[in-house]
Amino acid sequence: MKFVPCLVVFSCVFAYAYALTCYDCSSLTRGDACETSIPTNSTPTEECTDVGASCSTTSVSGVYTRTCEASCEEQDLCVGISILRVCTKKTCCSTDRCNADFDSASSVVVSFFVVVVGLVLSVVIVQRVILNARYRAENLAKKVLLFKQTSSFDDDNHVRALKSAGFDVHAILPQEFRFCNGEMIRSLLSASEEYSGIIFTSQRAVEAASEAVRDWSLVTKNLKCFVVGPATEKAARNLGFDTSGSDSGNAKALATQIISWFSSLPRPRPLIFPCADIRRDSLPDSLKAANVPLIEIVSYETKPHSQLKENVEAFYKNDATPDVVIFYSPSSVNFALPILKESEFNWRAATKFVSIGPSTTEVLIRDVPDVLTASAPNPEAVVDLLKSL
């Protein structure tokens, strides 16, 4: 930064031109300011010409000495006992004629270079604060519209992370769910020893299964559990599963892990796959192609949220066009994007479209040519992507 060398040069010139004036005398009176004062650059003491010289006031057994010192160290010391006791006290200060007495003297020696360093650091800190404020102001101008399913936007990790990063976040629920086939799920899992594992590709699938089964102790013991994404992993772990595949990022990558694991089993048995009535084919197709037996069961039905269109129109009416739109699932694209396209606003103008993962991108890119995909389905990856825009 250019201002740093300028400050250093200024400090050197200023230090050379400035002369500290100190009282230089002895007195028997504590408050006597003396009649004589000398500038440090003309004192006979050679070292008083140094930058950083200080004025001092010293008391030794009632005799007060005032002078200037190149290096002043404060003292408060008594030696001996009774009538042989000798006490020495010295105070140091660094402003003109500040050593009139102990009451007016500073208790800390402040060198000029310390002041300069403080000034430089202050400028750096102020500049950093200004830059952060400017960055935050720029982000606050960026309206981010999320289509994400969650039980509470106030507690949602993605919403909180984006708000903490300074973005103006607006979230809309894109869909609603209804659990179904609970009896069938319960029947399958009651015979969990007949299967090798269970696959969850959404948090909602875990919730649907947990509604059907109350005791998961044997199920979690008998079945290997594969999941996609941290939210699904958390929900499955809450049931007692030791999960795998959370870091796969998408169904295709998860299928590769499952196939590798399944081929190593001494006694491979079918896998259970609770899923939505609307699902992608990539996972089941990949497993079937590798001859991995899969029992699919629709555990919940998905439909557009009853207030989706109303909420989208209210957003545009109150907040104009968003700078960024983020979709968190293929179904959120299928339900929300047609409403955006039908709106009277120019939703394509200067709007960036972000997808949480490859499966969502695959659906979104059919209507939006330029789609940005988060590197991972977590809040940090989404925030990093938006900061790069």
Rank of each mutant, 00 (worst) to 15 (best):
T351D: 06
P5D: 06
I81D: 12
P293K: 01
V86I: 09
N41D: 15
I172Q: 14
K234M: 08
H158A: 12
V324A: 11
S375D: 02
V354A: 13
L188V: 03
G80T: 02
L283I: 08
F14T: 03
Q127F: 13
K143C: 09
N222R: 04
N181G: 03
C98Q: 15
A133I: 04
K163V: 09
K252T: 12
K309Q: 14
V86S: 13
D156P: 13
I199C: 06
V228N: 03
E342Y: 07
D323Y: 14
A133H: 12
T65N: 11
V51C: 03
T45F: 11
T243I: 00
S329I: 07
N132S: 13
I130D: 02
K303C: 00
L140D: 08
M1T: 09
V116W: 10
V363Y: 01
E296D: 05
V298N: 00
C34T: 09
Q307R: 13
A19F: 11
F102V: 02
A320V: 08
K142N: 12
V116S: 14
D384A: 13
V63H: 15
L7G: 13
K387W: 06
S192H: 07
S71P: 08
A53Q: 14
V206C: 07
E362P: 01
C68G: 15
I295D: 10
E73N: 12
Y16V: 07
V109Q: 11
F10D: 06
N132M: 09
K143Y: 07
S164R: 14
T373D: 05
T243M: 03
A336I: 04
S210D: 09
D50S: 06
F200K: 05
A105R: 13
F112S: 11
F177S: 02
D32F: 10
C225P: 12
S246E: 04
S343N: 01
V4A: 00
P266F: 01
S59R: 15
I83Q: 14
F315Q: 02
P377K: 04
F335G: 06
E380H: 12
T29V: 08
S42M: 08
I38K: 15
D370Y: 11
A208C: 04
L119Q: 01
S210C: 08
A209V: 00
M184R: 15
A191N: 14
S299C: 03
S152F: 03
V324I: 12
R348G: 06
P377D: 01
I130Y: 07
Q307K: 13
L287R: 04
C98L: 12
P5H: 11
C12P: 09
C34I: 06
E301R: 14
N318F: 06
T220Q: 04
